[in-house]
Amino acid sequence: MYPPNASPVLALYDVTKVHGHGDAAVRALDGVSLALPAGGFTAVMGPSGSGKSTLLHCAAGLDRPTSGSVVVDGHALESLDETALTRLRRERMGFVFQSFNLVPTLTVAQNVTLPLEFAGRRSSPAVVRTLLERLGLANRADRMPAELSGGQQQRVAIARAMLARPAVLFADEPTGALDTQAAREVLDLLREAVRESGQTVVMVTHDPVAASYADSVIFFADGRIDGSLPRPDAATVAARMARLASAVPAAQAGGVR
């Protein structure tokens, strides 16, 4: 469950996102409002074309909504220019994607500290070492990404996202490229980050098992929130997703994510 009386660290107010113009316009988000507290793990799910990835991109400032307001850690994103928005993403947001996005010519430790270096900030070697130990990477600090398994590479990506202790960690299908065991390890790490460090995680996933690691699941359909499920289990999530998928017209499949 979410912490009681927690203030929102991420809030969307009547957010819309329209792709295209005229008859070809697609409304990917249709007046979405939600507030997520600090220290929670939220999964976002929906059929293909439901708008779940568009929601994440707008919430993280990777895309600008057509209308409405997004507030992250007290900052209204629409009021920021691109320079300020980039700075906020570096300092107060973390990102983990299906592709690991590691620099192949840098070591594990160098990949982890790279975003801080871009931001002109120094990282304590002791802090980096402690974080790598916590994620089971202490003996891999000097290895190159090509020497690691997929699960280990994703753990490096999580360490990189967590190093600056962001207000929100956004994860877009973080287990999509992993086998079952590696996926469990990654999800355990994300859940531990919430439980032990008070981290806030927002994860887009298509996998009911992955969603069951979250405190709550938000379901999307046709660009709108279609309910939520606290304390989810995989079977209940799968059943809810099956109902949503059956309601999606065949012509809509493959549309906006």
Rank of each mutant, 00 (worst) to 15 (best):
A38H: 06
F170Q: 03
N111A: 08
A182D: 04
A234I: 00
G39H: 00
G51W: 03
D142K: 14
A59S: 03
Y213D: 03
L55P: 02
P208C: 02
R89G: 00
N139R: 14
V248F: 15
K52L: 05
T130I: 14
L163Y: 00
V112F: 04
M203L: 04
N111V: 06
M1Y: 10
D73E: 12
S48G: 12
V209C: 12
V217R: 08
F170K: 01
A35N: 05
S99I: 08
A221K: 15
I218W: 09
L10S: 00
S99W: 15
A183T: 13
T83P: 12
V15H: 13
A59W: 01
A183N: 05
T54A: 07
P145A: 10
P249I: 04
L163F: 03
T175C: 09
S69G: 15
P115N: 10
T180Y: 11
P3E: 13
P125E: 13
P145W: 12
V26W: 01
E196M: 15
T86F: 13
P232I: 02
R143P: 07
E117S: 12
T200E: 01
A28G: 05
E173H: 01
M45W: 01
H19I: 04
R184N: 09
K17D: 06
T16K: 15
A182T: 01
P230A: 06
V103R: 15
G40H: 08
A193E: 03
T42N: 12
H206T: 09
L36Q: 07
V18I: 13
A25S: 15
D81M: 13
A247W: 15
A25E: 10
A25T: 13
T54E: 04
V256S: 06
G49V: 08
M1A: 07
M144F: 14
I158F: 01
G31Q: 08
V186S: 06
L163P: 00
L106K: 07
N5C: 15
S50P: 02
H21T: 12
S7K: 08
R195Q: 12
V70I: 02
T83S: 14
P8L: 11
T236R: 11
P37D: 02
E147C: 15
P8M: 14
S53D: 01
D226Q: 11
V44N: 03
Y2F: 09
T66A: 09
P145F: 06
L106A: 06
S50W: 01
Q152V: 07
M1W: 13
H21P: 06
S79W: 09
M93P: 08
L80E: 15
L190W: 08
Q199Y: 04
L229H: 06
P3I: 09
A35Y: 07
L187F: 06
S67N: 08
L229Q: 05
V237C: 04
A38R: 06
V127R: 11
A177V: 04
G136N: 09
Q98A: 01
G68Q: 09
G31L: 14
A239Y: 13
R240T: 14
V248D: 13
L88T: 05
D207V: 03
V237D: 02
D63Q: 11
R64C: 06
R224F: 08
A141S: 11
G136I: 04
S50T: 07
A161I: 00
P249A: 03
A38G: 05
L132V: 07
L12K: 00
A182L: 00
V9S: 01
T54S: 07
G74E: 11
S67M: 09
V237S: 01
L132P: 02
G22R: 02
